[in-house]
Nucleic acid binder design. Sequence first.
DNA 1: GCTGGAACTGAAAATCTTTTTCACTAAGGC
DNA 2: GCCTTAGTGAAAAAGATTTTCAGTTCCAGC
Lengths: 153, 153
Amino acid sequence: METKGARLEEWSQRIAEHGGRVTRPRRVVMQVLLEAETPLSPQEICTRARRRYPSLGLVTVYRTLDVLETLAVVRRVHREDGCHAYLPATPGHHHLLLCRRCGRAMEFSGWDALDGLIAELEAATGYRVEEHLLQLIGLCPRCYAQLKEGERG
Amino acid sequence: METKGARLEEWSQRIAEHGGRVTRPRRVVMQVLLEAETPLSPQEICTRARRRYPSLGLVTVYRTLDVLETLAVVRRVHREDGCHAYLPATPGHHHLLLCRRCGRAMEFSGWDALDGLIAELEAATGYRVEEHLLQLIGLCPRCYAQLKEGERG
DNA sequence: GCTGGAACTGAAAATCTTTTTCACTAAGGC
DNA sequence: GCCTTAGTGAAAAAGATTTTCAGTTCCAGC
Ligand SMILES: [Mn+2]
Ligand SMILES: [Mn+2]
Ligand SMILES: [Zn+2]
Ligand SMILES: [Zn+2]
């Protein structure tokens, strides 16, 4: 498993390669994202980042998220109650497993049995499928255990 | 296949059962949704509905969408460029097939080979999966044909 | 059919979120 | 270290959604 520091370094390099500058505000935003246990909204990112760098502007958070999204190192999470929370993205195509109780998110892949199903659907409908969005919502092991306990009393 | 009128009637009944009133503004919003070829934003719904009922307030569109979403007769579509377009939902659990060119959307179901895959994932991760969001994005047959034609000259 | 009262409506204002503008700052190649 | 230019933060603007409120309309009960 990759350390936080290594990923920060990696993201910084990606920004530089892309012709961008690695500034202090950007570094702080990246750190907050990398340390988060759950997806965070721009507002939440700003609040947390200001604990370390109080003069940070919310505008810069938005701009940094744009950059990171372009570089595909962060991903947006879609939920019924709002779709503007961001998560570090491991490279490549991934799906998301979300805990509805604690908010924890987990990426997974290597699961493209989905591909066979998509092929079937293409044959049946005439549609050409290019990409997909798959998110599973439920309970993480920890929250599931806690809820079962609660039921007992 | 169910007619538009029949579905309007059905939605109205659902509202009444739920203790709500079937008012003229609500009926107009429902009609617009039922006639749409693509998912529509609240703003778009309002514009179209005003052609028939000019005094309609945008607020009422928001409120009506809330009601219809609660009754699960409309569904929100999630896209990278925004997640606030609404679509009539056929009852039960469904997935979405979206055309990235013309915007047309198509629900599909009866496809829960996905269930087997979810069971595997639960075993592997310890997560308990309760619901999921699956949207496939690509080209509808019509748009695919047109694009291929365009390539030729 | 009327009527009374609660549900619903639209305008305006308030609130939130995101984008734009602009004068100033600081990365980082030289 | 210096220079250029990308990036920054404050403020304002633009957009989206929610709240408030006085007036209207639906419809259950007569
Ligand atoms: Mn996939
Ligand atoms: Mn399904
Ligand atoms: Zn979404
Ligand atoms: Zn199409």
